[in-house]
Design a protein around this nucleic acid. Structure first.
Length: 416
RNA sequence: GGAGGGGUGGCCGAGCGGUCAAUGGCAGCAGACUGUAAAUCUGCCGACGAAAGUCUACGAAGGUUCAAAUCCUUCUCCCUCCA
């Protein structure tokens, strides 16, 4: 079925649609109403990462097609922990940790959404606002009555735990109840009619729509996005060096740009559709490129994705730096850098120490291996002497370029 | 509550008194080839040390032994079967 509403059409053609509780109903609603929709974000880390980006993009498309997004921070539910598809209980987060994480996560949304008081401005709410003050008895009587334990046990998301006879605490078991309650509460407060999320949230989302229907007597919708896997079978956003964070203080815009630039050929089209806002027709053209021409598409992908997350200037700088480094063999301002005083440089700086301090390696041993393997370079020249010391004679225009492998470059600059 | 099996490096998984910093696979890093891609091939893959070597590590704590991931005791967690 081809959707008619701009919102669903956009999601459909870019690949965001996985499951929907009532797609034609939602489509119809979207054509005549302003949808108020939300996605919840757990406060399990102090920054979101590209794995969360698909949800953020959904909210962005929602807003851009004239509807109202709600960002729901899981300040309350994170105190419980989502057991979905986890084979073990997650470590309990301390209240301080949750608060810290919440602050870190908040920042990123402003990049993607417009917040304010206007009719389709985004708002951000925290479910701790209502969950923290629930009255247990009242809650049980008003809401507990609507949940069937038999049914909850049948959800795939908890089955794994049960089948492996691994403990599922009552605390965690309540997660889905609380999340369902969120929907009912948001519906009451903001006339929110749609919850979106990743495929793994389907069970939780369905619970929410059911509960809202029962207690508020409102017909509301749920919609999930597919779980993105890359052509090599890995989950989107998993890299050797850990998560690809969205906060600049956890991952520099330059590295973020590099992440996209290093996408596999086979994934370029998919990534462009999900993580940029280029028109579908243009993406189709880019996807057709072959051989090393596809690199142009990857650059566009990196520029677009970085612009969304870190702004156009950051994207441009990253691009310029990459160009200087990879095409001209030079160095650029956005590379990881290390400052050293002229005095110290004159005394000599151990190459191993430099590699460590700039963050390319974590131990002396690793540095030595890199050097032995002929992967370490100073000003593009391979250095295979472990005892090499950097000195003033390595200076070129006041800086020294240090590389670890073909991809990791940094500069040592002399400060006065 | 009873009986049995098991917890080994980021993951999987060998080892079952010395030759074990621990086979192998995956993941990762580097090199070659390329296009900052994929595939392939090669090397590396605990920390400190220039090195000799030292330290930390095989669920936890004790013990036996010249010597323990390997044997014994207690504890702990997981799995299978029985009640």
């Amino acid at each position: 079925m081809t959707p008619h509403s701009t919102f669903l059409k956009t999601l459909a053609e870019r690949g965001f649609l996985n499951q929907c509780t009532d797609q034609s109903g939602l489509d119809e609603y979207a054509q005549t109403n302003k949808i108020v929709a939300y996605i919840g974000f757990d406060c399990t880390a102090d920054s979101l990462h590209v794995g969360n980006l698909i949800s953020i993009m959904m909210l962005r498309h929602l807003q851009q097609t004239g509807h109202k997004p709600i960002v729901l921070l899981g300040g309350g539910t994170s105190k419980v922990g989502d057991p979905s598809f986890k084979d073990e209980a997650r470590k309990m987060l301390s209240l301080e940790q949750i608060e810290h994480n919440k602050q870190g996560i908040k920042k990123v949304f402003e990049k993607f959404l417009t917040f304010g008081d206007g009719p389709n401005d985004a708002i951000m709410v925290d479910n701790a606002d209502w969950l923290d003050h629930l009255n247990y008895m009242a809650f049980l009587r008003d809401y507990g009555i609507h949940f069937s334990v038999n049914r909850m046990l049948s959800f795939d998301s908890v089955k794994m735990r049960l089948e492996r006879e691994q403990n599922l605490s009552f605390l965690e078991f309540n997660y889905m109840i609380l999340q369902a309650y969120d929907f009912a509460e948001l519906n009451k407060r903001y006339n929110c009619v749609l919850q979106m999320g990743g495929q793994d949230q389907w069970g939780n989302i369905v619970n929410g729509t059911d509960l809202t229907r029962r207690v508020n007597h409102k017909h509301v919708f749920g919609l999930t996005s597919p779980l993105l896997t890359m052509s090599d079978g890995t989950k989107m956003g998993k890299t050797e060096r850990g998560a690809v964070w969205l906060n600049a203080d956890k991952l520099s815009p330059y590295d973020y740009w590099q992440f996209w630039r290093n996408a596999s050929d086979a994934d370029v089209g998919t990534l462009l559709r999900f993580y940029t806002e280029l028109p579908i027709s243009e993406i189709a053209q880019l996807e057709k490129l072959e051989g090393n021409q596809l690199n142009e598409a990857k650059i566009i992908l990196a520029n677009e994705a970085t612009t969304l997350c870190h702004g156009i200037d950051a994207a441009r700088h990253s691009f310029e730096t990459a160009k200087k480094v990879f095409e001209e063999g030079g160095a650029g301002g956005d590379l990881p850098s290390l400052e050293i005083s002229m005095n110290d440089l004159e005394k000599g700086l151990s190459f191993i120490e430099a590699l460590k301090q700039i963050g390319f390696v974590e131990s002396n041993g690793e540095a030595k291996r890199l050097i032995k393997g002929r992967g370490a370079r100073v000003n593009n020249n391979v250095i295979d002497d472990e005892a090499y010391h950097l000195s003033t004679k390595d200076l070129i225009d006041g800086s020294i370029k240090v590389s670890a492998g073909k991809k990791h470059h940094g500069v040592i600059v002399v400060k006065n």
